[in-house]
Nucleic acid binder design. Sequence first.
DNA 1: GATGAATGAGACTTCATTCAT
DNA 2: TATGAATGAAGTCTCATTCAT
Lengths: 219, 219, 219, 219
Amino acid sequence: MSVNKILDQFPATIQATKELTQKQKDVLIASIQLFAKQGYANTSTHQIAVAAHQSEGTMFKHFKSKANILRVALEPVIFQIIPDVAAELKKDTLSKPFTNLHDFLIIFVQNRMEFAEANQDAIKVFFSELLYNEDLRQEFIDVARKQFIVSFEGTVTKLQKHNLIIDWPFTMIFRYIASVVAGYILDRYVLFPNRDWNDDDEAKYLVAELEKVLQPEQA
Amino acid sequence: MSVNKILDQFPATIQATKELTQKQKDVLIASIQLFAKQGYANTSTHQIAVAAHQSEGTMFKHFKSKANILRVALEPVIFQIIPDVAAELKKDTLSKPFTNLHDFLIIFVQNRMEFAEANQDAIKVFFSELLYNEDLRQEFIDVARKQFIVSFEGTVTKLQKHNLIIDWPFTMIFRYIASVVAGYILDRYVLFPNRDWNDDDEAKYLVAELEKVLQPEQA
Amino acid sequence: MSVNKILDQFPATIQATKELTQKQKDVLIASIQLFAKQGYANTSTHQIAVAAHQSEGTMFKHFKSKANILRVALEPVIFQIIPDVAAELKKDTLSKPFTNLHDFLIIFVQNRMEFAEANQDAIKVFFSELLYNEDLRQEFIDVARKQFIVSFEGTVTKLQKHNLIIDWPFTMIFRYIASVVAGYILDRYVLFPNRDWNDDDEAKYLVAELEKVLQPEQA
Amino acid sequence: MSVNKILDQFPATIQATKELTQKQKDVLIASIQLFAKQGYANTSTHQIAVAAHQSEGTMFKHFKSKANILRVALEPVIFQIIPDVAAELKKDTLSKPFTNLHDFLIIFVQNRMEFAEANQDAIKVFFSELLYNEDLRQEFIDVARKQFIVSFEGTVTKLQKHNLIIDWPFTMIFRYIASVVAGYILDRYVLFPNRDWNDDDEAKYLVAELEKVLQPEQA
DNA sequence: GATGAATGAGACTTCATTCAT
DNA sequence: TATGAATGAAGTCTCATTCAT
């Protein structure tokens, strides 16, 4: 299934980026792990350097500041946490054109669950930094706005035209989807990572929650 | 409506607590404001002291440590963010015994919206600290467990017996409600506090989202 | 035996002093105990106030400063750690005039052991403060000088005239006695207070050590 | 005489230690001097940094805590204040096997006087910290125990077998020697450093004091 | 280029002392 | 008079960043 390809994004994304040397990628990976465990403010650049097996001097040569390490490390999440729904749909509808909300939600949920599984740490850091880091928030809002217009909002509008989704304001729909998915991620990866999770069951509940609310009123 | 009384909780709660002097309340209020704006780790005790118009010495005499300031300031949220649903219901069912989910949700949503409005800053701080502050997380989980057993889970179970709510596992129901409400709070007070919000509309959407999912399957 | 009377000096000394109220004596007693356990510098005036069951304000009214509390509390030791040998001898020689070193040492050693037993804490504090507290050291040296002249040195000189003690310089003799006795006190009360001590045995060894060295060369 | 070589120990010891940079040695030397003059508790890390011509940051990078500076600075004293008697004897008895207590005491006293001369400050600090610093006391007791068993107690027992020293319990003998030597050091370097001292005379008195007491009873 | 020693600003915290009540 | 809340100076320690090697 095409969505699987999204899986190897991250930290694969970091791994693949051409402009970064392996040492620099080590820094980003170590950073995300430490930030996720202790928080950004409670992690020292010294800790990062040790975890990434290199000197602080070298680290600062490349990344200039601690804040910049965070920014670069979170870039993949900033760009991918809102999925490029349009692209995903296009891939899948090549063979099987979209005619119902249910199939869309199944693909969407699976896609996001895989993204979350692969990027737990970075997502946790991203959310917490979003609260206080004005720069990050602004950068994300800018990116998100574009993503919405070219993909998400467009897709939703199209679905609404075909009466495949409820006729609520886009922001309402978006927040609802985001809330349900984010709630799952928080529960699953942040609050109770050690509970005994059954991902298939979770997926079914998520789809059900989304479908019940988002299906068109008199469908 | 009885739920209105819950409104004057916080920072009203801080204001009213008998054991605290006005100076101590000033510290808590200033702390929450600063923490909400800059984050706990980025706020110095010096800043708090200045904002609360007193010396750091005095502050530490009363609160012993910065961590303790946070703990005391968040106590109201820890204890009230999960509402005492049972108590609320009892008040309202004195006159009008509960017979449908819809009325329950209206009261519930209004109650939480008012709580959020009154405690925006503290809620924001609470969420962000929940991510990395083990002690806080543990304290909250302990408190929450009790709250669940005596109130929330009991209420849900009772509703399920009367076929007034969907027959999903309690944790699933709880997470769904929490996700939807928390998503609204995040959007409303953290991410886009300056947008032009219509609280009545928001309440209607929230109730709709909750009702569509939570209503019993063949009701 | 007359030396027994010296026993009830301290903290009896503090208890008896006329100019001090009970509350003030409580402060001195608490101070000595805390200083002995933690050191002067590591003991806060707050701790003392709590241990003495009164307010810091009152304490400072009477004692003016922490340093002064120490000075007043140590006064008994300053004045009595060098025994008034002449007076002791006079008492005992009323019945049994002194004719040999051995009897003198027995009385002397017993006297000092009892003093040490009764004033362990204060002695410990006294020694440690002697090292760095210039004022205390000067006060002690002044007091000691007088005590020497009127009592100790006079006694030794008299004993030397009668060929009852070795003909070494007085300072040498004094240091020797002080070393042997202080070494015992340190071992007994500071370093190994929990060992199983037999005070009679210790007394015999002390007397032996003193006698072997201090007896006149061809006695 | 071989014991002279022990002289260049300290602060020579600090100077020579291979693992320490010059900057780190500066810290230790400055610390000991300041601690000896003012006491550990009354000396600020700022004072040490200034005296050692570096920043507090650098100091803490290497020593981690003020307590650790003390510990490292006192290490030479901890390990050498109880002399390795056995080793000393072996050196000297290569040519001239030990047959009397007198020669042993001469060597011993000279050795300790030289050690004291070279380490006055550290010894003073060591003694005062021994009173309240539990960790230091424990470390010293541990080290001392080993030193005793392999060297001091063995030597004394051997001397007793050959009837070269009095048949007292070892702890008694050890405390007596320690008292006499420590009494001298305290008098000489702490209480009256400015008096006009004649070290040869002092040595003779010390040897006499030790010999009179320690010689076998019917030798 | 790569390193890590050095820095100094600033964080949290303690405490002897004062003073309004 | 007795109190203890309030203070601010000073203490220990951390850390992002720089720079000489």
